[in-house]
Simulated scan of single mutants.
Amino acid sequence: MTPQSINAYKTATHNFLKQLEVFNEQQFNTVPFEGSWTPAQVADHMYKSQVGLPQVLTGNTEAAHRKPDANNEVIGNIFLDFNTKLKSPDFILPSLQPLDKAEMLSNYYSKADEIENTAQELDGAEVCLDFALPVMGTLTRTEWLHFVTCHTIRHTRQLENIHQQMSL
C-alpha cells in the first residue's frame, strides 16, 4: 500500500478519535436531536464497518485489471458529499444499548492499529474477493483503504455536527 494511502487513513482515524473523545460519558450515549445517532452509536457503526477489514485485505485476492485506485473518485464522491444522507446496511447498524466510552475507544484504537499494520504489508493493486459492495462490487486493497478513509471523514463530520448541537 502506498504511504499516502496509509497516511490518509491514519489522519482520518486520528481526527475521528479526537472528535469522539470530546464527548463526556453522559453525552456519549445521548441523542442530540431527533433522527440522530448518539456519539456512541456513530462509534459503534464505524467499528462494525471496519472490524472485518483486515480479513478482507488478507483474504482471497487476484491481480487487478485496472488502476489500483480506479474507484477512489467514485468512493470519495459518495462519502464526501455531506448533503446526501446515506443509509447504513443492516449488518453495521449500531447498537441501541448504551455503550461504554472507554471500551469503545480502546476497541477502536486496537482495530485501527491492526488495519494500519495489515495495510502496510500488502500490495494495494490486488483485488479483494471475499467481500463485494452492493453497487461497486469488489475493490482493490487501495480502494478499500480509501473507502474506510472517506467513511471515517464523513462520520467525523457527523460527530462535529452532533457536538455543535450539544453545545447550543
Rank of each mutant, 00 (worst) to 15 (best):
T11L: 13
F82H: 15
V148E: 04
Y9A: 10
H65C: 01
T142M: 06
P39V: 11
L168S: 07
K18C: 04
Q158I: 09
N24Q: 04
L122H: 09
S95E: 14
D130M: 10
Q164F: 11
N29H: 01
L99T: 06
F147L: 14
P32W: 02
Q41D: 04
A125I: 03
P94Q: 13
A119I: 00
L105W: 07
Y9E: 07
T149Q: 15
L145G: 00
Q158E: 14
D100W: 04
V22Q: 14
R141T: 08
L53A: 03
L93M: 15
L139N: 02
N83I: 05
I153C: 00
M1L: 10
K10R: 11
L168G: 08
M46Y: 00
H151Q: 12
S5K: 11
V148W: 01
L86R: 14
E114A: 05
A63L: 09
P89I: 04
R154N: 02
V135A: 10
H151A: 12
F28N: 13
K67E: 11
N117K: 05
Q26R: 13
Y108T: 07
G76K: 10
R157D: 01
I6L: 13
W37E: 04
Q26E: 15
Y109S: 09
Y9K: 01
K67R: 02
F147Y: 11
L168H: 07
S88N: 12
G59T: 02
G76Y: 00
F16L: 15
F131C: 03
M1N: 06
N15R: 09
Y9L: 09
G124I: 09
G35P: 13
H65G: 08
H146A: 14
P3R: 12
Q27F: 03
R141N: 04
Y47V: 02
P134W: 08
S36I: 09
L57V: 05
Q41V: 05
F82W: 11
T140L: 03
H151E: 12
E62Q: 15
D123L: 06
K48A: 06
A43L: 14
E73W: 07
H155P: 04
A63W: 06
D100A: 07
A102K: 12
V42A: 09
F23W: 04
E34A: 12
P54G: 00
E25H: 10
G124Y: 09
Q41F: 08
G137P: 09
